[in-house]
């Protein structure tokens, strides 16, 4: 009994006493499964800065939690269109480029994009595309794009990411419209096409769309390129296709919120992640397109040849912030999903 009391007292003292000055910390708020543990450990070991890694499952969730202001985050990982809205609302802190010498490794085509035209607030972390995965053992006909994919004969054999804006954008480009043209008129045009498509889909999954493909529950999918790259790495029967009708890229960024308590540590972490040998670790675990050219030199020929990781990218076409129009997409998709399920 006395031991228990002593332990409890110790725990209480530890809980209420202020953290010692020496243990500097960095509050990182990032996607779940996007920053390798080895990178975090390596940074802590080298700098003595403790990293608190909190995670979220969508850019919107991140934004919502950041705005509610429960905790002060020093470094966040927003997708491009969320960063655009954050910059416009002065929620990000301008970067001190003098503290980021490793920025020189980044390929220029991933900088100065519409979400941050001067690259003043954000650093690209990984770039991805959304494309079609085909299980070539079960699907023999060529699949070149959305029209080939969404056919009656593939009914109940398709997985797509559970992301309403994504699905709407595929329909828009199939109709020859811009993926960022989210107006009532364009949504009305896309509606019948999406309604047909949704009837064919078996699974909607954003977290791990590769799982039903791997399990054999479906033979085709529209998924994040990093998920596709993992499938292809494990089994050559999977192929990755950039849809002929048009596709878009997403740029996942690192940025420092305006409310950050420790921007100095955030800059150190940013520059650490930009080191070629550290960036390579991220590519090993999350095989998206690495914007770090010096890190790419460290990758194996097999990694670089993975068609999902390094597809022939033209001019990057990214999502733009659509503000309140997100509610129109939500209503449209809820309606169509309900109708498709009968």
């Amino acid at each position: 009994m006395p031991t228990v009391v002593r332990l409890l007292t110790l725990a209480l003292v530890a809980a209420i006493s202020p953290a010692p000055r020496a243990a500097e910390s960095l509050n990182l708020f990032a996607w779940s499964e996007y920053v390798p543990q080895a990178v975090i450990d390596g940074f802590s070991q080298e700098t003595g800065i403790k990293v608190n890694y909190a995670t979220y499952a969508s850019g919107e969730e991140m934004l919502s939690k950041l705005l509610t202001g429960g905790a002060a985050y020093d470094l966040i990982q927003p997708p491009d269109y969320i960063a655009e809205a954050m910059i416009r609302n002065k929620l990000l802190r301008p970067l001190d480029r003098a503290r980021l010498p490793n920025l020189r490794h980044l390929a220029p085509e991933f900088l100065a994009l519409p979400h941050d035209p001067a690259s003043a607030y954000t650093v690209p972390y990984m770039i991805g595309t959304v494309g079609i995965v085909v299980n070539t053992e079960r699907v023999k006909e060529p699949i070149r794009g959305y029209r080939d994919l969404f056919q009656k004969k593939y009914s109940n054999r398709i997985v797509v990411v559970n992301d309403n804006r994504e699905i709407v954008s595929w329909a828009l480009v199939t109709l020859g419209l811009s993926q960022n043209d989210i107006t009532r008129a364009s949504l009305a045009k896309a509606r019948p096409l999406i309604a047909e498509w949704l009837k064919l889909v078996k699974v909607f999954d954003s977290d791990s769309p590769k799982t039903p493909l791997l399990n054999g529950d479906v033979d085709l999918g529209v998924v994040w390129s990093g998920e596709a790259a993992k499938l292809i790495k494990g089994n050559k029967k999977f192929a990755y296709v950039l849809p002929a009708e048009g596709y878009h890229s997403f740029v996942d960024l690192l940025a420092i919120p305006a409310t950050a308590k420790n921007p100095a540590a955030a800059h150190r972490f940013l520059d650490y992640v930009l080191r070629p040998e550290v960036s390579k670790l991220i590519s090993d675990e999350f095989p998206y397109t690495n914007p770090n050219l010096a890190a790419r030199k460290l990758l194996s020929p097999e990694q670089l040849a993975n068609p999902a990781s390094y597809p022939p990218l033209g001019k990057l076409d990214t999502f733009r912030d659509i503000g309140k129009a997100a509610a129109d997409i939500d209503k449209l998709m809820t309606d169509l999903k309900t109708a498709a399920a009968k």
Binding site: A57, S58, E60, E61, S64, D163, A326, A327, I329, D330
Partner: peptide, 12 residues
């Protein structure tokens, strides 16, 4: 979806 999803519409 309204609270932590894409809809960003807590009031709804």
């Amino acid at each position: 979806d309204q609270f932590v999803g894409q809809a960003r519409d807590k009031p709804f």
